[in-house]
Structure formats: C-alpha cells, structure tokens
Design a protein around this nucleic acid. Sequence first.
DNA 1: GTAACTGCAAAATATTTGCATCCTT
DNA 2: AAGGATGCAAATATTTTGCAGTTAC
Lengths: 139, 139
Amino acid sequence: MEKSIDQLLKKSRLSVTESRVRILELFFSQPGALAHGDIEKKTGEKFDRVTVYRTLQVFLAKGIIHTIPTNDNSIRYALCREACEEGHHHDNHVHFVCNDCGSTTCLEEITIPVIKLPKGYASSQVEMIVSGTCRECKK
Amino acid sequence: MEKSIDQLLKKSRLSVTESRVRILELFFSQPGALAHGDIEKKTGEKFDRVTVYRTLQVFLAKGIIHTIPTNDNSIRYALCREACEEGHHHDNHVHFVCNDCGSTTCLEEITIPVIKLPKGYASSQVEMIVSGTCRECKK
DNA sequence: GTAACTGCAAAATATTTGCATCCTT
DNA sequence: AAGGATGCAAATATTTTGCAGTTAC
C-alpha cells in the first residue's frame, strides 16, 4: 500500500510528504467519498486545515481525485479511476448519497446511460447522483 | 405575471412581499438556474443579503424552487415544476452546466433514464448533471 | 542546496442568528 | 392588531493568501 501511494504521487510529479500520504491512505481505506471536514477529523486534526485545502486542490489538479456535486453545500471528494488524467476526468459511474448516514459511495458497477442532448449542446462530462437509503442504513 | 406569482405565494401560504415577488420574477424571467450571488446582483442589491438567504430557504422549504448540485462550491436554485410539492421534489429532468458562460439550464425535455441500483439500495431522488458547452456559447 | 511543502496568522468570503422595526393580512 | 418579514449588527463558519520555517529530493 505504502508503495503504490508513493508511486501514485511520484507519477503525478508530487513530492511524497506525510500529509499527502495520510490523506491518500484515507481515500484508499474506504469506498466512499470524503468531505473536507471528514478528512480533518479522520486524520485526527493532525494537519493544518490549510494543508488539507491545499492538498485536495493539488490532488484535484493532478486528476488524483474528483469532486462529486451534492445538493447540500458540502463538496465531496473521491478517488479517480485509472482513466482519469491531469485535467481530464472520466468518472462515468453513478454516485450514491445516503440521506440517513450522509455517506457518499461510488457505484462503480453502474454505468451512466448515454442521453441525447438537444441540438446545439456539447457535453464533456455527465454526472449522476442518486440519493436515498444505502445498504447499511436499510438493514 | 404579477397575478400568477401572487397566487403561487398564496398557495404556499406565504405573504406577498416585495422581495419575494421580485425574486420569483427573476426566476420566471429566465430559463436557467440562479446562484445566491446572481440574485443579489440582478435585483440591484436592493435587498439585504440576509433577506435573499431567508427567501431562498423559504422557497426551498415550500417546494417552489430546488437546488441543483454543482461541482464547484456554488449552489444553484431553479424553479420547480408542477409536480413538486412541499418537502417532496420530482425534478426528473437533466441539468446542463455550461463551462464557458457558467449558466445552468434545466433541460425539461430530457427525462433521466431509470437505472438499476445494486441490491440493498433504495433511491428517492436522481440527479443528472451534464456539463459542456451550451447552445449560445457554441455559436 | 534548492525547490517545494507546511503551519501559523490574518484577510477575505460566506452563512447564520438575534432583535428591533416595518409590512401584510 | 397580530404575526410574519425585513434590515442591521454581529457572531460563526469557510476558504484564501502571505510569509517564514521545514522537509523532500
């Protein structure tokens, strides 16, 4: 694990620092998406709030993570898959937001259906967010 | 126009005040979605920032408008269609966000395709956001 | 050794709350 | 007249920026 995180950072021409490694570990350790606040808490407030902001911005710019739009104010971040490259995302999977526990999950197994846009529109990215009750909360 | 806005407010058991009427007129006067800042500007900063916040919250609660999730931080608001009722939205149309001019449009004519969720998930709402270049910017 | 990264302080923004006053019904 | 809505002030929360010290390479 350590190894692959190292490599991921190096591949993106970023230096391997403690905060970056810890935050990436966090993302790899769970299937869902994380909001800024989650990251602060789950790293035990070890890193400065500003460092978290900057780290997320760098990861975004390098195409390591992507944002997931949500109805409430909070932006969530999730790991990109292989296909993502710097400045060019291809996350054509569905995101699920649970209204009970608030967790956001990437439903990798579901592909977003292709829709036909009205004349004159060109699409570069499609997002699909399903909200409801997740597997855990439904039990 | 005046008339129907009046009726809309009355139907929602809200008193008819200048700010509410002006803000609703704004929504009706254009096809897209508006962010908080847009509303402040387009009303000529006539109303207190706090009033705009509170007005939007009330409209949301009454099911007059709904939020559109976006990748960037900004929440957009758009009018609900007939089918929306208090606390229960049915906006199963696609939203289009233009990366050039930043406008958000409701593509009423396109219905979100139904997808099959993995076992154990229950969906209450589905959002679909397409981003790219809109009709105006493509010209 | 140098460039990049971090933490602290502080600035800039955004959002919420309390309360007195004003407007709608 | 009574209740709700607004505006102002101020409290909170969120995000950004500058800079000096530290760390990775």
